[in-house]
């Protein structure tokens, strides 16, 4: 078997390949946005009249907030009270790990197949399998 000779790619083909790659990239960036899945936001519990005491701030903390320009406890309240929700489903976690591991397994297997061709052609001077 002789060595693999790749076809020469014309200008139009080169341009199309770049366009495909870019389309995929922007698709991946915008898809979570359109599906409304993007971002992890904090939630702020509703409160009545906010005072530094009701926000649980000690004297030093109050002084630093005032030095930062937040003199009104009501203005600082949304920042102080916002919390993440770390509740999650084990199913979703399992799905994520399956996706990540599956991705690597697929990639390593396909890579290895291509790699054997490369090594065979480089060190034996011929390509073991005929693949066009």
């Amino acid at each position: 078997m002789s060595r693999y000779v790749p076809p020469k790619q014309g200008r139009v083909g080169q341009f199309l390949d770049v366009a495909v790659l870019l389309a995929m990239t922007f698709g991946a960036l915008y898809a979570p946005l359109y599906l409304g899945l993007a971002g992890s936001s904090k939630s702020v519990p509703a409160i009545g009249e906010a005072t530094w005491e009701s926000l649980g701030q000690n004297a030093t903390q109050v002084a630093q907030y005032q030095a930062l320009g937040l003199t009104d406890p009501a203005a600082a309240a949304p920042i102080i009270l916002a919390r993440y929700d770390y509740g999650f489903s084990w199913l979703a976690l399992a799905v994520m790990f399956v996706v990540v591991i599956g991705y690597y397994v697929m990639m390593l297997r396909l890579s290895d197949r291509e790699y054997r061709d490369v090594i065979a052609e480089k060190f034996d001077g011929s390509n073991g399998r005929t693949r066009r």
Binding site: L21, T25, A28, F88, Y103, M107
Partner: peptide
Amino acid sequence: YFAVFLGYGTQLVAMIVFYIVASLW
């Protein structure tokens, strides 16, 4: 990965889908 999953799990999956499609391409 677990830390990212807490809050950004869907983005992680969206991105890996992108890399899978790109790999097949």
